[in-house]
Design a binder for these strands. Structure first.
Lengths: 210, 210, 210, 210
DNA sequence: GATGAATGAGCGTTCATTCAT
DNA sequence: AATGAATGAACGCTCATTCAT
C-alpha cells in the first residue's frame, strides 16, 4: 500500500530538512552524516537507505531551494500580470530580480547556501510546476515571446544577469560590503536593464528575424 | 642577524608554494596538513610553527594570488600607457579586464581557487608594489583622476565589475557553460562599459563635483 | 500437505545455490547475508527463517559439495566395475582419486572452497545414495571386502590418502606451484599406492584375521 | 641515534606478539585492528604507522612462525649430526619431521595458525640463519648431497612430504580425529619413507647422473 | 510465511594536534 | 628551531539482526 511509500518520502524529507538546517548553520564541510541523521531523529545507517552521501543531499537541496526561490518569484509575477494588461519583458525580469533580492534579504543563510553551490547547469534546469514543469529557460523564452523586441544570445544574457545578481548580493547581504543592499539595488537594476538593452537586436535584425 | 629571519621566510614561502600546488591539484578539503608539510620537505610539526591551520594558509594564498593577478594586469597596463599619450579610463579598465580574463584562461585552476575563496574584503585591500603598496582601490582612483569624466559610487562600481567578471568567467572557463569564453568576452566587455557609463556623473554633476 | 514442505525445500535450495555462487566468486568473508538473499531473489529477513547465519550455510554446502564429488567418482566407478569381472581394490581407489583430481581440475573454485573448509568429521560422514545412504567409510569397507588382501587401520589409511590428495592438489591446481597438475598426478598415485601397501597386513596377519 | 629505531622495532614486535595472541585465540577474521592495538597497549592509529592492515601482519607472522619451527628443527638436527659420524638423508628428514610433529603437539594453536595460512610459496622461501640465510630448499639440497643416493624431482618430493605432514597433523592434533597423534606418527613416518624411496633414482639413473 | 525498513554497534581509516627528543 | 612518533576523536560506511506490517 501507499502508506509505506509515504513514510519513506517523509524520511527523505526529514533528512533534507535536517541537512538544510545543519548546512546553513555550520557549513557543509563541517556537517557529518551522523549529525544529519541524529538531527532527523534517525539512526546513522538509515541515512544510507536514502542518500549515497552528503553531497547527494546537497545537490538535491540546491536544486530544490533554487527552484523554490524561482517559483516564488515567478508565482508573484503571474499574479501581478493578471492585473495588468500591458506586458513588458524588461519590467517582468526586473520584477523577478527584485523579488529574488527580497527573498535573499529575508534569508541570508539561504543566499549563502545557494550562491556557493548553485551551478549554471542546475539553474538552467530548474522546473516550474505552474508551467507544466517546463524549465527556467522556457520561462524566459515565454516572457521574451510576448515582447515586441527580439533578443540575441538569450541564454548568455540570462546567464550574465543571474550571475551578476547572485555575485553582487553575496557580500552585500551577508557582510554589508561594500554597500548596503538598498544602495546596491538601484544600480543593480540599472545594470541589468543595460544588459537587456545590450542584447536587444537592432531594428534591422528585428525585421530580419521577423 | 637577519639570516634567521630569512630562513623563517623561506620556510613560510615553501609551505605556501606547497599548499598552492596541492590546493589546486586536489582541492582544499582533500589536502591535509601533513601532505602540505611533506610536499614542502618539512616535518609535520614544523607546519604549526608557521601557520595555525590550512585555512590560514588558504587565506594568505588567496590574497597573494589575487594580488599577483592584479599586479600582472596593472604592470602590463603601465607599460602600455607609457607608449600612449591619450589616456582613457574606460579603455584602461577594459584593458585590465581583458588581461585578467587571459590569465584565467591560462590557468583555470587559479580561477577556480580564486573565485571560490576571494571575498570583497580581501580584494579591495590588494596592495600594488609599483604604486608604493597603495591598494587596488587607489589604483582605480588614480585612473579615474586622469579622466575628464567623474564617477559616483566608485567602490560600488568596481565591485559590480569585479563580481561580474569573476562570476561569469567561472562556469564559462571551467565548464564551457553556457558558452565558450571567446563568445562571452565581447558581451562581458560591453556590459562592463555600460556599467561604467551608468556610474558616470551627468554633466551637471560633473560641474558640481569640480 | 507436502506442498508447503516442498516450497520450504525450494527456498532452502535457492539460498544454498545463491550462497555457493557468491562464496566461490568472492569468498565467504566478503559475502554478506543480504547479498545471499538478494541473489536468491528473497528478502533479507527470509534468510533467517532457514539458516542461522552464513556459516551454517557454508557447512551445509561443504558437506553437499564434498558429497557430490565423491558420489560422482563413486558412480563412475560402479559403471566401470559392471564391465569388468576382475576387481582390484587398489585400482578402484586409484580410479576414485584420478576421478576426483579431474573434477578439481574442471572446477578450481570448487577445490578452493572444499579444501579450505572440509574437515575429516564431515568427510567421513558423507552419505552415498546409491549405497542406501551408507557413508563413505562403508564404501571403502565394501571395496576392501572384495579384495583378497586385508588392511589394518583402515580409517587412518583413508584419512592419509584423502588429506594427501586434497593438500597436494590445492597449490598445484590453484597456483601451479611447485609443479603442474599433470606432473603431480603420477607421483601422487604412486604415493597413494605405497600408502595402500604400507597398510596391507602381512601374510601371517592375513591368516590370523581370517 | 639508534634508540629511536630500537623503539620502533619494539613497537612492531609488540604488534606482532599481540596479533599472534589474538589470531590464535579467536581467529584472524574475528580479530580487529583496534583489538590488536589495544592488546599491544597502543592507540589504534599507531597500528597504521607500522602495518597496512591485519593481513600484512598475518603474512609477517606466518613467515616468521614457519621459520621458527623449521629453524628449531634444523638446529636440533645439526646438534645431533655433530655427535654422529654416519649421515643418512632419510634419517635426517625423518628426524626433522618428528621434531616438527613434537612442536605441533606442544602448541596446537601454532599448528592451527600455520596450517591454515602457510602457502608453498612462503614455505619454500623460509631462510635459515645458521646457514647464512639460505632458504629451506637449500637445506634439503645440502642434506641430499651428502647422501650416496640420488633423487629426481626434489622440490615435488619435499612438497608432498610437507603437505602430508601438515594436512594429517591438523585434524589429529587439534581434534584427535580419526586417531591420536601417537597412532598417526608411525604410519606417517612410514609413508614419508616410502615417498623418499619413490623419488630415489634407480641404479641406472644414479650412474647416469654420476 | 515473507518482507524490507530501521537499527546501531563496530569496522577500517584519516588526521589535526601534541610533545619528548 | 625542528622533528616525527604517538595519540584518539571522529569520520564514512557496512551489516547482522530485529520486527511491524
Amino acid at each position: 500500500m501507499g502508506k509505506i511509500e509515504d513514510k519513506k518520502k517523509q524520511k527523505k524529507e526529514a533528512l533534507l530538512v535536517s541537512a538544510m538546517q545543519l548546512f546553513t548553520e555550520k557549513g557543509i564541510a563541517e556537517t557529518s552524516i551522523s549529525e544529519i541523521a541524529k538531527n532527523a531523529k534517525m539512526a546513522k545507517g538509515t541515512f544510507y537507505l536514502y542518500y549515497k552521501d552528503k553531497y547527494e543531499i546537497r545537490d538535491h537541496l540546491v536544486a530544490r531551494k533554487a527552484n523554490e526561490i524561482f517559483e516564488n518569484a515567478h508565482h508573484c509575477l503571474r499574479e501581478k500580470l493578471q492585473k495588468v494588461t500591458e506586458k513588458n519583458v524588461e519590467d517582468c525580469i526586473i520584477y523577478l530580480v527584485e523579488n529574488i533580492i527580497d527573498q535573499f534579504k529575508e534569508s541570508p543563510v539561504l543566499l549563502k547556501f545557494i550562491a556557493k553551490n548553485l551551478s549554471w547547469g542546475v539553474f538552467s534546469n530548474i522546473r516550474i510546476r505552474d508551467l507544466d514543469n517546463r524549465n527556467c529557460m522556457d520561462v524566459f523564452d515565454e516572457l521574451l515571446q510576448y515582447s515586441d523586441k527580439r533578443y540575441r544570445q538569450k541564454e548568455l544574457m540570462i546567464y550574465m544577469i543571474v550571475e551578476l545578481l547572485n555575485a553582487t548580493c553575496y557580500n552585500v547581504i551577508l557582510y554589508h560590503m561594500p554597500v548596503e543592499i538598498e544602495r546596491l539595488k538601484d544600480d543593480l537594476i540599472l545594470a541589468i536593464q543595460n544588459i537587456l538593452k545590450q542584447f536587444e537586436c537592432s531594428e534591422v535584425e528585428q525585421l530580419e528575424s521577423a
